[in-house]
């Protein structure tokens, strides 16, 4: 047991546990045909949390190692400008309808989630963490922190939203008779961020490209919009 106590206190150990679990979860997900229900991040979170609880390790101890991965979220968020620029160049002429769809979609996502959660008497911390649920975790984690919510809860809700978006989009497209690839992809990117984008690639490359564009636009817009929308709804 002394052996365990020694290594459990080392940041390196938790770095290795995080990366190993994620690689295993990604492999498992690919074997299952990439289902969004068992997204590698969701599976990794479940396994690592169970492991920490079983070994009696606190989140603080875990984060001492995992923080080195967490740190890269900052430069990675900045790097989102690269695919955004690529897509942007391709659809410059269509910016107006796309911006309109992105902005309306982003406001609808946040406002409807906040109003429904409020109607169910959710606590303030939950409300502020649910607000950024439609944008990529890279941005949602920072937004939740700025709003006074819980970044970790926000990142969990983002993942569930992503899985829901991938499940709900195909039947809704059938009912509304949406057949165009570009519309399908963009809508998935607005409502279900990176997970929706990955799913959109199954409709084709064009759907995936529009999904990526929507994810970047919606993320950036939401980060600036939420600090205005939240007080407008009388929250906080």
């Amino acid at each position: 047991m002394e052996f365990w106590t020694f290594f459990a206190a080392k940041p390196l150990m938790w770095l290795i546990v995080t990366i190993t679990t994620f690689i295993a979860a990604s492999w498992f997900n690919r074997r299952l045909g990439g289902t969004p229900l068992l997204h590698p991040v969701l599976v990794s979170l479940f396994l690592i949390i169970v492991f920490l609880l079983l070994t009696g390790t606190s989140y603080e101890t875990y984060f001492e190692g995992a923080q080195f991965i967490h740190f890269l979220l900052g430069p990675a968020t900045v790097a989102l400008a690269i695919p955004l620029f690529d897509h942007f160049e391709r659809v410059k002429k269509l910016l107006l309808p796309l911006m309109l769809a992105c902005m309306t979609g982003a406001v609808t996502a946040a406002a409807s989630a906040l109003l429904v959660a409020q109607a169910f008497d959710a606590s303030l911390g939950t409300l502020l963490s649910i607000a950024p649920k439609s944008v990529t975790s890279a941005i949602a984690i920072g937004v939740a922190e700025k709003l006074g919510g819980y970044p970790s809860l926000a990142s969990g809700l983002v993942l569930i939203t992503g899985a829901l978006g991938c499940m709900l989009a195909p039947p809704i497209y059938r009912i509304l008779n949406v057949t165009d690839e570009a519309v399908k992809g963009f809508t998935l990117g607005v409502s279900a961020h990176g997970m929706g984008t990955a799913f959109a690639f199954e409709y084709g490359l064009m759907a995936g490209a529009f999904g990526g564009l929507a994810m970047g636009m919606t993320g950036a817009f939401t980060a600036f919009m939420l600090p205005l929308l939240v007080p407008l709804l009388g929250i906080g």
Partner: peptide, 16 residues
């Protein structure tokens, strides 16, 4: 960095 973006969400997510 973006290729492995999903991995970067794990440390914060474990905070659940």
């Amino acid at each position: 960095l973006l290729k492995h973006l999903a991995l970067l969400f794990v440390p914060a997510g474990v905070g659940l």
